[in-house]
Design a binder for these strands. Sequence first.
DNA 1: TCTGGGGTCCTAGGACCC
DNA 2: TCTGGGGTCCTAGGACCC
Length: 429
Amino acid sequence: MFALLDGNNFYVSCERVFRPCLKGRPVVVLSNNDGCAVARSEEAKALGIKMGEPYFRIRHLHEQAGLVALSANFPLYGDMSDRMMSLASALGPEQEVYSIDECFVGLDGVPDVTRRAWAIRQRILSGIGIPTCIGIAPSKTLAKLANHVAKDAARKPGSYPAELSHVCNFAELPPGQLRGLLEATPVGEVWGVGRRIGARLQAMGITSAADLADADLVFLRSNFSVVLERTALELRGTPCHELELEPPAKQQIACTRSFGKPVTELEPLVQAVTTFAQRAAEKLRAQHLRAGMVYVFAHSSPFRPDDPRFARSASVPLVEPSSDTSVLAEVAEQAIRRIYEPGYRLAKAGVMLLDLSPCTQKQGSLSFEIIQPQRDRSALMEVVDGLNKRFGRGVVSIGSTQSTGGWGMRQERKTPAYTTDIRSIPVAR
DNA sequence: TCTGGGGTCCTAGGACCC
DNA sequence: TCTGGGGTCCTAGGACCC
């Protein structure tokens, strides 16, 4: 058995903990650059605000309906998440933290599950101030669905039986009731069925979760994929997905941003991309990984069809994997200079680090790095990352090989960072 | 004027091999 | 007209998730 616990309207709930005056009011939390709404209170949803709705389209609701829009505070949400996960882990012997606001809990051997779930929910509510819902079922997909029932039963009276509000355990429903719940749930609400597949299923007459559970497995696999076949199996109560207790090793690390205003000049673009590479390199070292490939892209706005279209990228393989900020930033800079062409209004750019491998370099010895400055400086950089994390981003930085100072580590690399002349790197369009 | 960011997995199709 | 049969590896693109 699995439980799925998640925080309701998580970012908004976090903000309300520290600003109780926001309770009962329509509130949204905005993405980076205050571009669009990424979390909505129930009151904001009731105003018709959709997930991802651009802020400029809902701004008028401040005057009309008292909408409060907040800039996201991700360090706060991360901290609240850690506390919530810690309390949630008491629900069962095993926990998979699935995202910032939800976790699966393995329930093998847990007695009296429903009562325990209520207790955990209350502990999180009174201890941290975050309201949660908990779904319990024999597969992850069904636990997700039970969680959906728990939420809608609470916030949309009449959608599901009221006694399933907040905590919904599929395993102890009276006979036949699960079937009714599946029939009452649109297929698009099922975990793993998105907009596209949902529309195709609808067109085939598969409109509810029950229809999908009943669908022919061979048909699903041949017309869609093995993924949807597994989803149908999970809806029947056959688990196909186990808990992932160890987070799997990352395959890519990205830092990408939309620009507040369109970027047309090269130098601000280089500035941005260099910063992205630095941030990505920090994340890379936090995972003790090195990258074998740097991917850089930039594109114009897809929302402005009248602008000349620009979408280019370049992948640069490194001679040897690196987690060195100066190497990765330099490669990224060369790549963006290669991609750039004047005459376009660029809306977004980013750096991705690919081909990741574990860092075998000895970690954590600052003096080692200073004595042997020719070595990969990842250990030094991890120290710098730690200082920045503790005392605020940017308090310490390392000079690049071109700059003076920077821990007195002017150094020349014996081999170039990337394979060939950057001009030979193909640009994808 | 203004439209998020960061991930994963699967599949089809081409290149290549014996 | 018919034009081997399988296997692997890689990549691009599509779909999903929060």
